[in-house]
Design a protein around this nucleic acid. Structure first.
Length: 898
RNA sequence: GAGGGUAUAGCUCAGUUGGUCAGAGCGCUUGCUUGACAUGCAAGAGGUCGAUGGUUCAAGUCCAUUUAUCCUCACCA
């Protein structure tokens, strides 16, 4: 066998080679096999022109772990990859480039030419993110790669739109929507982010017509005054009851507006008088409807003032605000200005303060759709993991409002509505039409496109061929798991669920596995503007994809955020954000630890390969197994069970933790060390048994680890004796009853604790390694020690001799220690620090006494004995016996010492 | 205003169904070029599990209250 490996694992060298091999072999492309159970995940499609960030890396890693696990477990696994056209984000990028390079706007180019540019851009950068996904090892079926604007997805979008429209669940009409004056489009509520900002309350006098009296209204957005069509007071507000119905002169204009009474007004707040601006405020819009008020829009699409603002026309909204406040002050109409902090909505893409504005838009009527979506989760057709996220989902679903789906963008699915210029008829159609079905007149298509999330909402089934009844759809749908961050539950998860329920009659996935956010070392959200983002590709470059993947899942509980600390050169002052241009990432301590783990595996394997002469993967005959073989096989068997169980429960962090402990601690630090003598000695009768066990356990452990660290496991697995062509499609290890060696495992514990005790003693006593000493072990289980030579071999280098027995007199001038089942003496003569040893023994005695006290307390408690399960009580009894026995030995040692 | 998360060793975090649960990594101390690995080996120090009360034979674990902190949604002009 012996194939030499390098001393240090070099991930860069193997990763690309292995990955392209896997793709060539078609391991990631599943067969539609009725004999097999399908397992499907659709990827949360990243922005087609985006770049991989740490959040993606985390998301992809989790999905890949699940997919690889299921693939090895015999499922026909499909992981559908793809990208999202990301309407606003992409359009903004292309527009920015256009402005920078050519000094043009999209309007200069016109719709068709601009769209051509976006498609060019998409062609240019669309493969970038896909290649980056491959870098981290994602085992997606690239033959099924999709794009939200490809033919199939577009067809699904139209189908859904027309279906909903025909059912009356899509309507068009004027509503107050969130308007981004920078992107020049409407936004849904989910696309608006609120931040607390310092603002002002301007108190302004509105004169009552024909009198010198006035009312004072308070506003945070004085510029909307030009759109006021009433002032409202609470009908029960006695202060104002006399003036309800009177007319006010709207300042800075020649318009007159009525005073009306409406429940909406809070008597206690502000002055109790509210200016009503139906065109610029959602509440006012409702009041306006109730009182049949005129709707006056005072701003243009770019948030400059229009003709209604009179002399302020053309000014930007804030410029106008300043100017009019100055004028009002001069006119004596400004009563006072109060500081007031309030939440201001901003566009989630460009950060511009949004303007609530009345506008004709398309909406999805949500209430009827939400019902089925609530039911789907209520009845557990879809389950959130962790469960708490279902509450967040329910909360949103139960309080949904209609979804504004039209965007005044060019990049996206154009709404399939056609207007007839002749008769005014509007036709919604799956197919493009050129003439009006009613009058035969010429029609033109709606200019608006759909919200990006409209097509994303169909992703789980549109990617599988819906609305066609494809084989993929039939076999792979509904999907099994959706993996995504909690930040897009509203944007995406909710909408997929109600869309799927409505259009496919089924929940789109069985489980929604929600994960947290990857934050920087200080717990702040990573962002480009802050410069604290960490590029996963750079980390892969530095440490390898396996190390990154391992870091991202280790020690993380489902749904919790994680920190990703890195070190910079030059170092970044604590409390400050790094400067992306100056500070370079030179290290990532967490990933370093993972890299070390990879290196550990590599070297353990190197050792195995160096010592392996057998060329077959099989278990040794039980009769040839030594104690430590049975022990490691037993532990391995437990590991198989634990890893499998935890993967099934989405506890990836726990699963990977168990693997780490097993490989590093049990396999490397104990098993390999223990069998070295057997391996080095070719004549040793159990030499072969050691080899078989070694390669059997290592191969199995690699298989269990493969979903987490696909590259290194494959690289090594290929060099070990194996059947099959790749670990990617190797069978997932199964629990094997024949490998239960509970007794041997217990015996090994005894040997290990004895060994640890000896090391501990020597270390505590500062015995130089060169100093050999005799070791006496007094135990009733002498056979455990003598049965296998390993213990002596292990001690041989450090010991003069080892004596085991259950009946000998304690040597003089010896340090001693007690472990469960054995008492160990080391005569060290002059090296023994008597005082120290006495102190240590006394301390040990006290410890045991307190343990006994605790256990006794429990056992003397009638309630405990009566109510606790028999097994628990039994365990406590055993503990008591154990401690008493140990105490006796410690006391004996103390006596001998004095 | 509504809902939710988090609080465990110096740091970053695990801890599953209440019963060896007080853990890991990093850092720290001590000693090691032991024929896979110094990206390593061995030994060790370090925690009233935010606070108070409750349920229970038994509580980091369940319940209530409370403090700190973070997040999401909503919002009164």
């Amino acid at each position: 066998m012996s194939e030499q490996l390098d001393k240090i694992y070099n991930p860069g060298e193997v990763e690309d080679r292995l990955y392209s091999g896997w793709v060539e072999k078609g391991y990631f492309t599943p067969e539609i096999d009725p004999e097999k159970e399908p397992f499907t995940i659709v990827i949360p499609p990243p922005n087609v022109t985006g770049q991989l960030h740490m959040g993606h890396a985390f998301d992809e890693t989790l999905q890949d772990i699940l997919i690889r696990y299921k693939r090895m477990s015999g499922y026909s696994t499909l992981w559908v990859p793809g990208t999202d056209h990301a309407g606003i984000a992409t359009q903004i990028k292309v527009e920015a480039e256009l402005r920078e390079k050519e000094g043009l706007t999209r309007y200069d180019l016109g719709r068709d030419e601009f769209l051509k540019r976006v498609w060019d851009w998409k062609e240019k950068y669309g493969s970038r993110i896909i290649n980056q996904l491959k870098k981290i090892g994602s085992s997606c079926d690239w033959s099924r790669e999709r794009f939200t604007m490809d033919e199939g997805c577009s067809k699904a979008v139209r189908e859904v739109f027309v279906n909903l429209y025909d059912k009356g669940l899509i309507y068009r009409g004027p509503r107050i929507i969130n308007w981004c004056p920078h992107c020049i489009t409407a936004l849904s509520n989910e696309e608006v982010e609120h931040t607390e900002q310092a603002g002002h309350f301007w108190h302004i006098k509105y004169q009552i017509k024909g009198t010198d009296d006035y009312v004072v209204i308070a506003t945070t957005r004085p510029e909307t005054l030009f759109g006021d069509t009433a002032v409202a007071v609470n009908p029960e507000d006695e202060r104002y009851s006399a003036i309800v119905g009177k007319t006010l002169c709207l300042p800075l204009t020649d318009r007159e507006i009525p005073i009306i009474a409406d429940e909406y007004v809070d008597k206690e707040f502000g002055t109790g008088c509210v200016k009503i601006t139906p065109a610029h405020d959602p509440n006012d819009f409702e009041v306006g409807k109730r009182h049949d008020l005129e709707i006056i829009k005072v701003m243009n699409d770019d948030a400059t003032m229009n003709a209604y603002a009179g002399k302020y026309e053309g000014m930007d909204r804030y410029e106008c605000r300043k100017a009019m406040i100055r004028d009002l002050e001069e006119m004596g109409l400004l009563v006072k200005v109060e500081d007031h902090s309030h939440n201001v909505g901003q566009c989630y893409r460009c950060g511009t303060t949004i303007e609530p504005i009345v506008s004709d838009q398309w909406f999805v009527k949500m209430k009827p759709l939400a019902e089925a979506a609530i039911k789907a989760v209520d009845e557990k057709h879809t389950e959130f993991i962790p469960e708490r996220f279902s509450k967040i989902y329910m909360n949103w679903m139960e309080n949904v409002y209609d979804w504004c789906i039209s965007r005044q963008l060019w990049w996206g699915h154009r709404i399939p509505a056609f207007y007839c210029d002749e008769c005014g008829e509007m036709t919604v159609s799956k197919e493009d039409i050129t003439t009006c079905p009613k009058c035969g007149g010429k029609v033109r298509q709606e200019e608006d496109v759909l919200d990006t999330w409209f097509s994303s909402a169909l992703w789980p089934f549109s990617t599988l061929g819906w609305p066609e009844k494809t084989k993929d759809l039939e076999y792979f749908y509904p999907t099994n798991v959706l993996v995504t961050g909690y930040d897009i539950i509203f944007f995406w998860v909710s909408r997929m669920i109600f869309s799927a329920c409505e259009h496919t009659g089924q929940a789109p996935f069985k489980h929604v596995f929600i994960h947290g956010l990857v934050r920087d070392g200080r717990g702040e959200k990573m962002s480009k503007s802050k410069g604290n983002g960490v590029d996963p590709l750079q980390i892969i470059e530095m440490y390898g994809a396996d190390a990154l993947r391992f870091t991202l899942v280790t020690g993380v509980a489902p749904g919790n955020d994680m920190r990703f600390p890195v070190t910079y050169e030059p170092p970044v002052e604590p409390g400050k954000n790094p400067d992306v241009k100056v500070n370079k990432i030179v290290g990532a301590p967490g990933v370093e630890a993972s890299r070390n783990f990879a290196n550990k595996i590599w070297n353990a394997s190197r050792f195995v390969l160096m010592n392996l002469t057998v060329n077959e993967r099989k278990l040794p005959d039980v009769s040839e197994m030594q104690l430590e073989d049975k022990w490691i096989l037993h532990e391995y068997n437990q590991l198989v069970q634990a890893v499998t169980e935890n993967l099934d429960r989405f506890e990836l962090g726990i699963a990977v933790g168990k693997l780490y402990d097993f490989i590093w601690d049990k396999f490397c630090d104990w098993y390999i060390e223990l069998i070295k003598p057997r391996l080095y000695d070719e004549d040793c009768p159990s030499n072969k048994a050691a080899q078989y066990t070694l390669s059997y356990v290592l191969s199995g452990a690699l298989e269990l680890l493969h979903p987490f660290m696909p590259f290194i496991t494959e690289e090594i697995w290929q060099k070990l004796p194996h059947e099959g062509e790749s670990i990617v499609i190797a069978a997932w290890p199964k629990y094997n009853e024949g490998l239960e060696f509970a007794k041997e495992a217990t015996d090994m514990e005894l040997i290990m604790s004895a060994l640890k005790a000896v090391r501990n003693q020597r270390s505590e006593m500062n015995i130089p390694p060169s100093k050999k000493a005799k070791v006496f072990i007094k135990t009733e289980k002498a056979d455990v020690f003598t049965q296998s030579t390993l213990f002596f071999e292990k001690l041989a280098s450090a010991s003069e001799a080892v004596v085991v027995g259950d009946d000998f007199v304690a040597p003089e001038n010896a340090v001693s220690c007690v472990v469960e089942g054995a008492q160990i003496f080391m005569p060290l003569d002059d090296l023994v620090d008597k005082e120290k040893e006495l102190e240590r023994l006394t301390k040990e005695k006290e410890r045991l006494l307190s343990e006994i006290k605790r256990v006794e307390g429990k056992l003397n408690n009638q309630g405990f004995v009566a109510k606790a399960p028999a097994q628990v009580v039994e365990e406590e009894r055993k503990k008591e016996a154990k401690y008493r026995e140990m105490l006796a030995k410690v006391e004996e040692s103390l006596k001998a010492f004095n």
